[in-house]
Design a protein around this nucleic acid. Structure first.
Lengths: 152, 152
DNA sequence: TTAAAATCATACTAAACCGATAGGAATTTA
DNA sequence: TAAATTCCTATCGGTTTAGTATGATTTTAA
């Protein structure tokens, strides 16, 4: 259950790529990750809107992370793609619940949401990319491409 | 994210109803829980196929749980409705992964699945129904129909 | 200055999924 | 025998999803 949308999976793979390459164009990422280029453009736009990446237009342009990947909990990524995590309608605030049982399952769903949120907060993008936490500070834009190890 | 399908939510509410009423017809459950009756029929059929409930046809028929609700982990319910939990394609076995990064996110998804599974296993249907664990033993199939209270 | 490479913007599409409905056949009991 | 029920199968409209199409805008490099 809870099939994770392809879009979100793509977003994560794109971000991992950015962690490991410091900067890259949509086309480059698409090719490396086997994602439809045009589709990926939209995903990157979303990530940008969420403030996770920044872009440079024009020739030689591309995308970069805005923060150290170890400061980006995966929950942020997921939220960027899917909006606020809401497993179930009535988990929100003024949930007018029609269930005769007074919405007994609500606690259950809240517990599940809590569990998922905790996990997603505990893992960072840096963790996933499996990059050394001491080096991976690409963000600051102008890291020398020479230094960057693209250890495939 | 991970919006839980209405169908699954309905299933849980129906089961909670069965815990609290011992037995009930699809129509009765539908009315009490404000669920489309015909739609609910299909849901109950699925629950039956999964062995969670049993049915009596004909007049005075209806549905009953097959087990003590405290022995039914919610994971079983979810699986009954949505099949095996598979958050992501490549979490399966021979996942041929096209990602250049060798599917780095895989561990992440596996961890999430593990987290969710653990939670869903730790909570039982009985817990949700908030019924006294000493009484709620409808299961044993052959409870006298006369005795069976289809109270409303 | 110009052409290529890139982001950005917008609209469209085909397919799948989802919640629900329709119409009955089969079964059981009062 | 009639009513109440489960069971079976098909269909439907709406939404989402993954992807495509087209082109405008921006920037750099030659």
């Amino acid at each position: 259950m809870f099939q994770v949308p392809t879009k979100t999976q793509y977003a994560i793979r794109a971000l991992v790529h950015l962690v490991r390459h410091s900067a890259a164009s949509a086309g480059a990422i698409a090719e490396a990750e086997h994602i439809s280029p045009k589709y990926l453009e939209g995903i990157l736009a979303q990530l940008k809107a969420a403030g996770l990446v920044v872009s440079d237009r024009g020739r030689m342009g591309g995308y970069r992370l805005t923060r150290n990947p170890f400061t980006i909990p995966m929950l942020d990524v997921v939220k960027a793609m899917e909006g606020e995590v809401r497993l179930v309608e009535c988990v929100g605030e003024g949930g007018a619940c029609f269930a005769a049982s007074g919405c007994l399952p609500r606690k259950f769903w809240l517990g599940l949401k809590q569990t998922v949120d905790t996990y997603l907060t505990s893992v960072s993008l840096g963790d996933i990319a499996e990059v050394d936490s001491s080096e991976g500070i690409p963000s600051v834009a102008d890291r020398p491409a020479s230094q960057t190890q693209i250890k495939e």
